[in-house]
């Protein structure tokens, strides 16, 4: 034999997946989203079920148009399901008032959009501090938190720059800092590493992973296998459906229904 045997790898220590007893942070149940009607009707998601526990990072992969962004906007309460339900920490988003939903979004959700959505008239730090201030955190404290979040993603020095004075990758990191600022229970990231080089995107993944290890639930949409590799579970979408997954959710459906009842009557209407 002249060639070398195939690689032999040690077993990695098990991933920091959630203890199966904790209640899910995100739970999507039979979620369908239909855009338009008649001949032009598009079914973006069809009957999707997904559960993400605290401490878990779940990656979503799938071809363009398979419904990844739709899934994220629904999970983030930015869009409303045609049928089915979305629960965040046991609360059905569809049954919240607009005001209550906005409060929950600011408090519990961090969102990195596929297109960045930074406010052009605000500096990096102000952009990051914005959701905290809207939530009643004092300006100074919000600013300190913002700088801490900017530091976490490695762009503290950009705190006082405006979006148009930053590169695409720098803006992206500011957007990520905005999603991570304060105590977020659920971090939703849609292609957060799009404009970043490989070293920087590795850093961003490290930060996201650390947040999940510290107890947040993360949902990451990505086209890059190397980034999905940081997840505890990778879910594959096609035509609005989950077609496969690299692992099972930590808890079987039956168990879930068992303790879902205790969290705001989450399981059934």
């Amino acid at each position: 034999m002249t060639s070398i045997a195939p690689p032999r790898l040690p077993e990695p220590a098990p991933a920091g997946a959630a203890p199966p007893t904790s209640a899910p942070v995100l739970r999507m149940r039979g979620v369908t989203r239909v855009h338009g009607g008649g001949a032009t009707q598009v079914v973006a998601l069809r009957g999707l079920d997904l559960v993400v526990y605290p401490g878990e990072l779940v990656a979503v992969m799938g071809p363009s148009g398979s419904g990844k962004s739709t899934l994220l906007t629904l999970a983030g309460g930015l869009d409303v399901a045609t049928s089915g339900e979305v629960f965040v920490d046991g609360t059905a988003l569809g049954r919240l008032s607009t005001k209550a939903l906005a409060a929950l979004r600011r408090r519990s959700l961090g969102y990195v959009f596929q297109d960045l959505n930074l406010v052009p008239a605000l500096t990096a730090a102000e952009n990051v501090a914005l959701p905290r201030e809207l939530d009643g955190v004092a300006t100074r404290k919000a600013y300190r938190e913002a700088v801490a979040a900017l530091t976490e993603v490695g762009v503290a020095e950009l705190a006082d720059r405006f979006p148009d004075q930053m590169s695409g990758g720098q803006q992206q990191r500011v957007a990520i800092a905005r999603a991570l600022v304060g105590p977020r229970r659920l971090v939703l990231a849609d292609e957060p590493t799009g404009a970043l080089d490989s070293a920087t995107s590795g850093e961003v993944m490290r930060v996201l992973r650390a947040r999940c290890d510290a107890g947040a639930a993360g949902l990451l949409v990505t086209h890059e296998a190397r980034h999905a590799g940081w997840a505890d579970r990778v879910v594959f979408l096609r035509d609005g459906m989950v077609v496969d997954s690299t692992g099972e959710p930590s808890t079987p459906e039956s168990l879930l229904d068992g303790d879902g009842g205790s969290t705001a009557g989450g399981a059934e209407r």
């Binding site: 049928s83 077609v243 459906e253």
Partner: peptide
């Protein structure tokens, strides 16, 4: 191209949407 059979049952169960 139609999404024929899912790879494994996975999270997409046969159960109809939620109610």
């Amino acid at each position: 191209t139609a999404p024929s059979s899912p790879g494994r049952p996975g999270a997409a169960t046969t159960e109809k949407s939620g109610r």
